[in-house]
Nucleic acid binder design. Sequence first.
DNA 1: GTGGTCTAGACCACC
DNA 2: GTGGTCTAGACCACT
Lengths: 129, 129, 129, 129
Amino acid sequence: MAWELNSLSPVYSQLADRIRSEILKGAYPSGEQLPAVRILAVEAGVNPNTMQRALTQLEGEGLLFSKGTAGRYVTEDGERLKTARERMKTATARRLAKEAADAGITLQELAQAMESLAGTEKQGGNEHE
Amino acid sequence: MAWELNSLSPVYSQLADRIRSEILKGAYPSGEQLPAVRILAVEAGVNPNTMQRALTQLEGEGLLFSKGTAGRYVTEDGERLKTARERMKTATARRLAKEAADAGITLQELAQAMESLAGTEKQGGNEHE
Amino acid sequence: MAWELNSLSPVYSQLADRIRSEILKGAYPSGEQLPAVRILAVEAGVNPNTMQRALTQLEGEGLLFSKGTAGRYVTEDGERLKTARERMKTATARRLAKEAADAGITLQELAQAMESLAGTEKQGGNEHE
Amino acid sequence: MAWELNSLSPVYSQLADRIRSEILKGAYPSGEQLPAVRILAVEAGVNPNTMQRALTQLEGEGLLFSKGTAGRYVTEDGERLKTARERMKTATARRLAKEAADAGITLQELAQAMESLAGTEKQGGNEHE
DNA sequence: GTGGTCTAGACCACC
DNA sequence: GTGGTCTAGACCACT
C-alpha cells in the first residue's frame, strides 16, 4: 500500500529497488531463501505478477537465483554482492549530492550534520551490517 | 499528479512542504500574490480544502498572509524568510546525513560525488524549476 | 441573518431588545422617525410580521408611538426614556455581575480592566449619548 | 442546539471557546478523557469535522492532547491549565469592562450589582457544572 | 470504535 | 472571483 503512482518509475522497478536495497543491507543474508512471491506480493500490496517481474529483474542482475520450484535464494557470489553494494552506494551518493546542491547545502554543512548525527547515534540500533 | 500516497505524511503536509520549499527557493518572490487556492488545488490534483489546509499551515508559519478576499501573498518579512530558509537547510542537511549514514556512505564519498557533480553541472540543465 | 435559533428567547423579543438598546443609546434621537417596518425587516433578515411584533412591544413600553400611516416615532417623553435607560442599565449590570461571578472575576479585577480600557479609549469615538 | 450563527466568529471557534471554558471550569478534570469527537459533534449539533477542528485548536493551545487512537485527554500540565485560566479571566474581564463602558455603567453600579447578587446567591444553585 | 485525513460540493462576505 | 467556513460522507491505521 503506497506503490500506486509514485509516478517516476514503474511499480515493478520501485519494488526491485526496494528489495535490492534490503538484500544489500543484509536483510536476507547470502544463501538465504526469500519468501514466496505471493507472500511478498501481498506484503507489498501489489499483484503477484508485478512482484514476479521485480524478482526476475533482480535475477537478471545476478543478485537472486531460482532453484526451480524450490524457491528463490540470495546469490552466494560475494564478489557480485560487493560490487552491487558499491554501485548502489555511489548512486545514492550522487543523488544525495544532487539534493544537497539543490538545497544550497555545502559539504561543510553536511559534515557538521553527519557529526552531530553520529553523536546522537552513540549506541543506537545498527540494523544493517 | 504524483501526490497520491507517499504514505509517510498527510497530503496537506506534503503540499505545505513543497510550497514552502518553492517559496524559499524564490519561486514566488516576496510580496508576490500566489495563485488562487482552487488553481493550486487543481494543479496539484487535490481537493481545494486540502490545499487550503496546506496554505493555512504556511500562514501559521508566517510565510504567507492573506489579504482577506484579495488573495494570498508571500510575506514581506525578509528576516522571517531568511530564518525559514536556514531552518529548512539544516533540516534537509540532517535528513541527507541520515540517509548517507543508513547507506554507509562516508563524508569522503559524498565530497567526491559533490565534486564530480559540480564538474557535470558546468553547463548542465537545471531541472528543478 | 443571525436571528434563527438563539434559542433562549423568541426572535421578536430579541429584535425588541436590540432596537430598544439602540433607541436608548440614541441611535434614533427622541422624536425621530423610524425606518419603515419592511425596511427594518429586510435589514434584520426576518419576516415583516416578526419585526412588526417587536415594534408593537416597544410601543407597549411607551418607547415608540405610531402616527397612524405617517410612520413610527421615538417617544418625546424624556422621563420615560430616562427611566427605561436606567432599567436597562441595571439589568445589564446584573447580567455582567453574574457573568463576572461565574468566571470568578473579582470587583478589583473588573476595576483594573475598566481602568486599562479607559486608558486605551482616550479620545476614541463615543457613539452613544 | 443553539449554535447556529451567533454570527460574530466561526462555529469551530465558538465551539473551541465553549469547550475551553468548560475545561478550565473543571468540567473535564485534568487527565480525564473527553467524549469521542463524534459524540461531542452530535451533542453540539455540528459536523464531526467542525468539532474536530475546534478540538485541534485546543490541542494547539496545549489544553488537550491526543493519545493517537486511544482518545483525547485534558492536559496534565497544571501550570498550563493555570495560565490558560488566568488568560481567560483577564479576557473575560476586558470584555465585561467594555460592555459596561458601552452601556454607561460605572464601577460603583457594578459593585452594587455584584453585592446584591452575592446576597441572592447565598443558597442559590450553581448552574455551571 | 477512535482520531485523522480527504473529497465533493455548498454557502457566505468582500470587492 | 477570492478566501473562509461548513457539511456529509468516506477511508485509513491503530488497538
